[in-house]
Write a protein that binds this DNA or RNA. Structure first.
Lengths: 208, 208
DNA sequence: CCTACCGATCGGTAGG
DNA sequence: CCTACCGATCGGTAGG
């Protein structure tokens, strides 16, 4: 039993994720539901309220999934792996809402945009803190936690752009491979000290 | 000596990168140049032509920077590092155009959108091929080159969203750290042989 | 490059 | 939830 308003949110999520908020009209949304444009306003207050409903819920889902993992007393490696799995689960589980959250939050007007910005900062902080703890414990190599958190989040946010439920990898399989690559790196030798690469004839130790 | 048309492209790049293509009007662009809206059409044919000029140039810059690096006979590790540096140099050197390229290409209409899609595929292919070569040579751990290329590109594309020229890190410093993290991973131990990883409950994992 | 304008569409409302 | 409408704005053009 889905209320009309929830139907509007879902339809808008689909259209916003495809065309973007600015390029989607209220008549587009109404048309998908076989309504006249003005009829939407019996259920919603404004187009931006619909965007807000989608984005604020998505933000809370990301945070609700990550907070307990970040706060657990497991090893940082385990926590970070769990957070990557949780993030990709949210992205793939509600891909349209997640896409709108990631791509259209700048269209919120002023008090709301800053609210979402604060939630994004909090979320990134969970990653930063977890990585910093891993560095402090010697689990992670010395690295800038802020830069590392930004990179990890960029990598896993990208999933929304290409994931298809019919694809060959499940969300957990994607998360496992992403976590492997992010934690262990691509290179066989891994990191320990910055020794030179023996397969390189051109002096790889000298960063460019 | 910048032609009026180039001024229009630059101004549009700034506005499109900030507000998005769909939410930027031709009158917004004209206003920044102290022109009337209709006056733009003495220099351009359509709003979409402006978008196309920005995006097609950006796509060519990314490709022109990466092609010779991908084709070199250096070690895959060296090639991939070089490609990451080149990519971040393009993103940071023309950040507005790069942002428009990354965020607004879906607003191109049909023949052009597919053209850009093909260039994006070619570009991703350079990363995929380089990573696959690294795996074949034993430089990289066994991994799905397609997934790895997608992840690396997502990570380095994210730079456009937060890079500021006044920030503490130069583009090359950012690239060096990103390459370190992507190639060597976050963990101190690094990867050696996947089958012996005690933190993974799922063995196997080759074969796709 | 401006003035003046075109038809179309926008988000939203009144009154039923 | 519909009909009918509001003022504003959209991309673009004619004619100078």
């Amino acid at each position: 039993m889905e209320t009309r308003r929830e139907q509007i949110y879902n339809t808008a999520g689909t259209l916003f994720s495809r065309r973007g908020y600015a390029a989607t009209s209220v008549r587009d949304i109404a048309g998908e539901l076989d309504l006249q444009g003005g009829s939407l306003y019996a259920h919603i207050k404004s187009k931006e309220d619909v965007l807000w409903a989608i984005i604020s819920r998505a933000a809370e889902q990301f945070l609700a999934a990550a907070r307990p993992l970040a706060a657990s007393d497991a090893a940082a490696t385990v926590r970070l792996r769990g957070m990557i799995h949780a993030h990709i689960a949210v992205v793939t589980g509600r891909i349209e809402q997640a896409t709108v959250f990631l791509q259209d939050w700048r269209y919120l007007s002023s008090p709301r945009r800053e609210q979402i910005g604060a939630l994004r900062d909090e979320y990134e902080g969970l990653y930063r803190t977890t990585i910093a703890a891993g560095v402090a414990r010697g689990e992670f190599a010395p690295t800038d936690p802020k830069l590392a958190a930004t990179m990890v989040l960029s990598a896993i946010n990208g999933v929304h752009a290409w994931y298809r439920p019919a694809g060959p990898l499940s969300p957990d399989e994607i998360a496992e491979r992403f976590a492997d690559m992010l934690l262990n790196g691509l290179k066989v030798e891994g990191r320990r000290s910055k020794v030179e690469d023996p397969t390189s004839g051109r002096g790889g130790a000298d960063g460019d």
